[in-house]
Deep mutational scan, measured.
Amino acid sequence: CHSECLGNCSQPDDPTKCVACRNFYLDGRCVETCPPPYYHFQDWRCVNFSFCQDLHHKCKNSRRQGCHQYVIHNNKCIPECPSGYTMNSSNLLCTPCLGPCPKVCHLLEGEKTIDSVTSAQELRGCTVINGSLIINIRGGNNLAAELEANLGLIEEISGYLKIRRSYALVSLSFFRKLRLIRGETLEIGNYSFYALDNQNLRQLWDWSKHNLTITQGKLFFHYNPKLCLSEIHKMEEVSGTKGRQERNDIALKTNGDQASCENELLKFSYIRTSFDKILLRWEPYWPPDFRDLLGFMLFYKEAPYQNVTEFDGQDACGSNSWTVVDIDPPLRSNDPKSQNHPGWLMRGLKPWTQYAIFVKTLVTFSDERRTYGAKSDIIYVQTDATNPSVPLDPISVSNSSSQIILKWKPPSDPNGNITHYLVFWERQAEDSELFELDYCLKGLKLPSRTWSPPFESEDSQKHNQSEYEDSAGECCSCPKTDSQILKELEESSFRKTFEDYLHNVVFVPRKT
Rank of each mutant, 00 (worst) to 15 (best):
P410R: 11
P304M: 15
N150K: 10
N224P: 00
L293Y: 02
E148K: 11
G343T: 05
L392I: 14
G313Y: 13
L227M: 04
S319M: 06
F174Y: 10
L227A: 04
H341Q: 13
H233C: 04
W352V: 03
G125F: 03
Q354G: 08
D312K: 02
D335T: 06
R332M: 07
Q403K: 11
K267A: 08
L349I: 05
V170T: 09
T383V: 03
E264Q: 05
E237I: 13
I232L: 13
T353Q: 10
Q258S: 09
I395H: 13
V324S: 02
V117A: 08
D335P: 12
T273H: 07
K301T: 10
L172V: 13
V359H: 01
S239M: 15
S158G: 05
F174C: 15
L298R: 00
L331Y: 05
E302A: 14
G318V: 08
T113V: 05
A259C: 14
P391M: 03
S398I: 05
F221K: 02
S400M: 10
N248Q: 07
L252E: 08
S132T: 09
V324Y: 09
L169P: 06
Y167N: 13
R281C: 11
W352P: 00
E122G: 15
T371D: 05
A356S: 08
A303T: 14
V117C: 05
S400A: 15
Y160D: 01
A374D: 12
I250L: 08
W286N: 13
Q354M: 01
L153N: 07
F358A: 12
K103V: 07
P330V: 04
L186Q: 04
K242T: 07
Q245W: 15
Y160P: 02
Y167R: 11
Q354V: 06
P329S: 07
I379N: 04
C126P: 01
F174S: 13
Y167P: 14
C126F: 01
G159A: 15
Q199V: 13
A303E: 02
L180M: 12
L169V: 07
F221I: 15
L153H: 11
H341W: 13
I157M: 09
G256L: 10
S116L: 03
E236A: 15
E156M: 08
V325C: 02
N255P: 04
N248H: 01
Y380H: 00
N307V: 10
K409R: 14
T127P: 04
E184S: 10
N248L: 13
N150Y: 03
N387S: 05
L298M: 13
A144D: 13
K360I: 04
G131S: 04
L201V: 09
E302Q: 15
M346V: 09
W322M: 02
N387D: 02
W352I: 02
G373V: 04
V359A: 00
L108C: 03
G318S: 13
L219F: 13
Q199E: 14
E236P: 04
I395R: 05
A385M: 13
S389Y: 08
F193S: 00
Q245R: 10
S260F: 05
W286I: 00
F290K: 03
E109H: 15
V381I: 11
N190L: 06
K162H: 11
S400F: 05
L147V: 02
N130G: 15
S319K: 05
K253F: 13
T213I: 09
Y300A: 11
L265A: 09
T386S: 08
A168K: 01
V390T: 12
N307G: 03
Q245A: 14
K253S: 13
I157G: 00
L180P: 00
G313L: 05
R291T: 01
N320H: 10
P225L: 07
L227G: 00
L201T: 06
N248E: 15
S338V: 05
T127W: 05
T309L: 03
E283F: 14
W352A: 06
F268P: 06
S171C: 12
R138N: 07
N142T: 10
N320P: 08
I405N: 06
F311N: 09
I327F: 13
L169F: 11
G152C: 12
L294S: 04
L196W: 13
Q121T: 05
S260G: 06
T113I: 05
T213W: 07
N248Y: 06
P342V: 12
Q306V: 07
A149Q: 14
G343I: 04
E122D: 04
S274T: 09
N340Q: 08
E246R: 08
S208R: 13
K242R: 14
F299T: 11
H106Y: 08
V381S: 05
I278K: 00
N255T: 06
K162T: 01
K209I: 10
L280R: 00
M297P: 01
K267P: 14
I181F: 01
K409S: 11
F365L: 10
F175I: 13
P225H: 06
K409C: 15
G125R: 07
P411L: 00
G125T: 03
S171T: 07
G131M: 02
I378T: 10
E156I: 07
A385P: 08
S173N: 10
K112V: 08
R370K: 12
F174N: 02
L280V: 14
Y305V: 14
V324T: 03
T254F: 09
R138L: 03
T383Q: 00
N150F: 06
V238G: 15
F358R: 12
G189R: 03
E237K: 14
F299S: 03
L229G: 03
C126H: 01
D384R: 11
H222P: 00
I357P: 01
K407G: 02
K360A: 12
V170C: 12
K226S: 05
F358W: 04
C261W: 03
S158Q: 07
T361S: 12
R369I: 13
G183H: 03
P410F: 13
L169N: 02
D335R: 13
T118I: 02
K253T: 11
C317V: 03
E156P: 00
L266P: 00
I134W: 11
G183V: 01
P329Y: 01
Q339V: 08
G140R: 06
A149R: 13
I378L: 13
P336H: 08
V308S: 09
K226V: 07
Q203L: 13
V238S: 11
G140S: 07
D115S: 08
T361P: 02
P288W: 07
G183P: 02
E236L: 12
I357H: 01
D384N: 14
D312N: 04
Q314H: 11
N136I: 04
S239V: 14
T383G: 00
Q403T: 04
S171P: 00
F311C: 01
W207Q: 09
T215H: 09
Y167S: 03
L151T: 02
S389H: 13
L161E: 00
Q121K: 01
K209S: 12
N255S: 09
N142C: 01
L345M: 08
Y380G: 11
P351S: 10
S269T: 09
V359Q: 00
Y300F: 10
S119Q: 12
T361E: 03
A145T: 07
W207K: 13
L362M: 14
T273A: 14
P388A: 02
L392Q: 04
N307F: 07
L252Y: 12
G140Q: 07
D292T: 08
L280Q: 01
N130E: 12
S116H: 05
L186T: 15
F358Q: 09
F193E: 00
K162A: 05
F193W: 09
G343S: 14
E122A: 12
T241N: 12
